[in-house]
Design a protein around this nucleic acid. Sequence first.
DNA 1: TTTAAAAATACAATCGATTGTATTTTTAAA
DNA 2: TTTAAAAATACAATCGATTGTATTTTTAAA
Lengths: 335, 335
Amino acid sequence: MKNSKPTIHDISKALNINSSTVSRALNNSPRVSKKTKDLILKKAKELGYQKNTLASNLRTNKTNTIGIIVPRISRNFFSSVISGIEERAYIAGYNVVIGQSFESFEREQKLVSTFLSNRVDGLLISISMETTDYDHLENFKNNGGPIVFYDRPVPLKNFASITINDFEASFVATQHLISKGCKNIVHFSGIQKIALYKNRKEGYIAALKKHNIPVNEDYIFEAKLSENDGVEFAKKILKLGNIDGIYASNDTSAIGAMQYLKANGIRIPEDISVVGFNNDPISAVIEPNLTTINQPDFEMGTIACSQLIDLIEKKDVNGQHQSKVLPTELIVRNS
Amino acid sequence: MKNSKPTIHDISKALNINSSTVSRALNNSPRVSKKTKDLILKKAKELGYQKNTLASNLRTNKTNTIGIIVPRISRNFFSSVISGIEERAYIAGYNVVIGQSFESFEREQKLVSTFLSNRVDGLLISISMETTDYDHLENFKNNGGPIVFYDRPVPLKNFASITINDFEASFVATQHLISKGCKNIVHFSGIQKIALYKNRKEGYIAALKKHNIPVNEDYIFEAKLSENDGVEFAKKILKLGNIDGIYASNDTSAIGAMQYLKANGIRIPEDISVVGFNNDPISAVIEPNLTTINQPDFEMGTIACSQLIDLIEKKDVNGQHQSKVLPTELIVRNS
DNA sequence: TTTAAAAATACAATCGATTGTATTTTTAAA
DNA sequence: TTTAAAAATACAATCGATTGTATTTTTAAA
């Protein structure tokens, strides 16, 4: 008959001990004697008691849960960040809820709203490509809890963020191509609404300028940087004819282009040198191995999560936004 | 002063309408008149009301949330399955909580326990490599809700599972190598505790037997199938000397081996042919492109999720385990 | 042994929404 | 206009745990 799960009241009745004492015993409060605790713990085990976290969360107004919003978990970079976040959260005793925006603003809004009504304690987010309006995030901050941005920077004051210096990394990548003798370098850029891609583009431009190479707007391609976009870009490159260098804002598009170029008889790096971004595992497998920028992805996760937990737990840091810029590294390989 | 979020009681007071009516209005119950609904909805918006899902879930004993346990999200196969699950869950109005076991039994147990006390409505799980004891899952089923297994089969009765026919896929893969003229085929096998790897091994053995090729136990290597395991296997292969075929239970290890073999002057497929498993994106990038088995990963996710939702929503299907075996396909490339 | 302080336990309200039942209001038939 | 039925709304209990305060029990000092 009784197929509902046991509650503290079942323990309470079974032992004739008030439920408040049962609750305190289960939470190991010093207000309950060792003897009673043992009794209660034994009975709890016997009944197969499992705390109803919903009830507990409702009462304490704390869920010990962190929400993560990520564009897509299938990208290596993001899944590494998530692993870093989980690692840190696990140690601190937080649960983690992951939602994918699939680069859709609408879906991102829904996720934020769900996290809000599920009362997560804080939010880690890398915004979608479509996001230019931040009301949903301001709202979360005002009514939900702290937010820490990671990877993709956002033009908001009073928010913490963990990023890399995209401008500088890009500058280094482009300079590497120049040092290899490239004169006509194209750039694969992402959607400009994402500041990150804008910054990368500007790093590329700055490097060219520094070395007195004219900046040609026709050499800057813009797309979502899928593998197929890389293929399309490669077609353009063949049409241009004189290109000797590619600096791509991600490895995926770089690899798409390399595949197409190789299939069309272009030698890499003899004819065209390529530098990517992200250091995806695949970059070490493609031939020639792709020179790329390594980001501290896992570390980005642990640091972002640490910051968030600090914000959640220390009310005094409230409002203070501790942002960090992490170092990147050029991995020189054979492309 | 009042920094707490508005509740139905705030709306109730503001309009002098009982909170039960407010609740019904917000849930669009036919018991509330259009006029009152409009009034309440307007006020809710004005106050910035957001339902407290915790309270609602506690009362209704339903969270509209599905728990997913996955060994690691960073593997392409799993992130595709997750995307499939999310797709289906999103349509059906369920939220999804993802937890990574990182192949650890302990962590898996903790996740199940967390999901149980957070009262997810059901569970989708691919068990960890260490899992040989299923008490935590039996317990979840008895006290939590339905479970659907995906990818990795489990020796349990009365559980639904969505899998592929590993034996058969393996048989086909091995036969392909034999048809290419391979006589000395090694097999990269995973941890035997996972039935999936056992089945793949048996498929390999069956194919050899069918073609009267003696089965040599020394040709069966066992490990966790990381890229590095592939490298180690490749070293063994070089030591053996006469190997002309590799059938690997995943692409990752196949690629590790290929990289090492190529670096040591072995030509693929002229000297050694290779077949992998999973059709990871990387398999289409490595040179030569890797012949592999494609699994319907995304579809596995949607189907598993559909089954679970059916089990959650229709009490009559309760107990009935609808298992499915999905088709696989050999993708012949150049290795 | 008495008694004040400390320790342990019980009481009762509460978190915010939901829901079966009771009451009031409205509608429409007589 | 009266009245029964239907529609709309109010009342009150509840989900399961937590927590400030009150009460009881134990401890130890006088």
